[in-house]
Nucleic acid binder design. Structure first.
Lengths: 149, 149
DNA sequence: CTAGGTGCAAAAGGTTTGCGGTTAA
DNA sequence: TTAACCGCAAACCTTTTGCACCTAG
């Protein structure tokens, strides 16, 4: 099995983090997980599992769908990716682990990472203990807005 | 086909709103939609389409799964219900159309309506035009918190 | 009258699982 | 050495679709 993915200089720093995070969460470090992580990390969008499968296959032709699901699951549980659930159908994955929210364009169905100044300490009802939050803002993206309807 | 649903006094005020909202959105007013709306409205939780099917069948035994999906879709498009997407698997439906957010308990997987003071006017990046937002806070609910891990 | 809705059953879409063989630690 | 992982294919769960009949407007 040939895989040139990690020979990229710009990906080098990711490997160490990946290995550490995986083992911290009780997962093994495998070539497939390394590759799926690399492919997701260099994605500028929010691919579905199937899109990840197609992209991963380009450099690792023998990888299977089940393995892609397995790898994505390991990445999510290791804190290296997020699941994004904004529309019906396939779940999407987000490699951006910095604090951010999502914008969903009702016109073009695009998903965009956005930074919005959000008060982190929500005033929750008594007894609730917040761990994290997911904020998705719906509307029209700049591109679709420039068309003016 | 027997359906006692709308004979309830407390549901009377819902019918007018339903009829108006449906026709405003280009949908017909049917007994099935009336019933699904009544069942959802009196739900205190966030049922899946299948849960709605089971509940709706109790008073309308001949209703089909496809019709439940059709009705729920019409309700969502008419602004009488919201879809809630917080976990993998089936989409859930929320009859509460007041401004509120959701709390997802990572421990018991429960979904709760909560009111959090949220600044409605987000400071969005240039070009984005917000229509609405979905906020889900993850953590532990009061019930699970009382167990202390 | 007729466009839209209903029930049924089959298909499609997305994810999970079981299994025999392989491998990271 | 061995528990975890891999690839493959079948199963599973949720949602959509096609069709013949029906009905709200």
């Amino acid at each position: 099995m040939f895989c040139s993915t990690m020979s990229r200089v710009e990906d080098k720093h990711l490997i160490g983090r990946l290995n550490e995070r995986l083992s911290n969460s009780g997962f093994r470090f495998t070539p497939q997980r390394q590759h799926v992580y690399a492919v997701l990390s260099r994605s500028g969008d929010h691919p579905t599992a199937e899109e990840m499968f197609i992209r991963a296959k380009q450099e690792m032709p023998d990888i299977s769908m089940a393995t892609v699901y397995n790898c994505l699951d390991a990445l999510v549980k290791s804190g290296l990716a997020k699941q994004v659930m904004v529309e019906r159908g396939a779940i999407r994955f987000c490699p951006n682990m910095t604090a951010h929210s999502h914008f969903y364009c009702d016109s073009c169905q695009g998903i965009f990472d956005i930074e919005v100044p959000v008060a982190d300490g929500w005033q929750l009802p008594k007894g609730y203990e917040a761990e994290r939050f997911d904020l998705t803002i719906h509307g029209r993206c700049p591109e679709c807005n420039s068309w003016k309807r």
